[in-house]
């Protein structure tokens, strides 16, 4: 089975760089899977887990605020933050979720609301990835 190189890069470091069989991401227009020899493609991503399939194993990575660039031989995901399962601090994510929940209840002006919503999404994303085994 053919593979392709997947790279996940954040401003701070390179999180992932390996040959994989398939990767599934959630673009702003919807979820889609990328197999080798996909057409060159660029789209922004939603705050959602990225699923990597490699040697019949699945790995989940929590990606936030990024986009994906697909090339013939290579796929690059650029994101503001990306964490593998082992890097996620579950307690911190839970705390962030609770904080965001409280803020959402408080109903401040629209800007704060949007921010709380985003941080809620990020926290949920991390929790989902962490719990997925």
């Amino acid at each position: 089975m053919s593979t392709f190189l997947l790279e996940i890069v954040t401003p701070e470091r390179k999180v992932y760089a390996q040959d994989v069989d398939m990767v599934s991401v959630k673009g702003i227009e919807g979820e889609f899977g990328i197999l080798p020899n996909h057409i060159p493609f660029v789209t922004p991503l939603q705050i959602a887990p990225v699923v990597i399939k490699k040697d019949r194993q699945e790995e989940y990575i929590a990606v936030n605020g990024g986009f994906v660039e697909v090339r013939k031989d290579k796929v690059v995901i650029l994101a503001e933050s990306a964490e593998r399962q082992t890097d996620i601090d579950l307690d911190r994510a839970m705390a962030a979720k609770n904080r965001a929940e409280q803020r959402l209840k408080a109903k401040q002006d629209e800007f704060d609301f949007r921010r709380a919503e985003l941080s809620m999404q990020r926290a949920m994303n991390r929790i989902n990835v962490k719990k997925h085994r």
Partner: peptide, 27 residues
Amino acid sequence: TSYEYEPSPEGVLEVLLPKYAETLIYT
């Protein structure tokens, strides 16, 4: 490389350009 863009080139730029500027500040 001619890419396909989703939803559109403008839509992608909309997201990308601010991100690019922010990254320049960070570096």
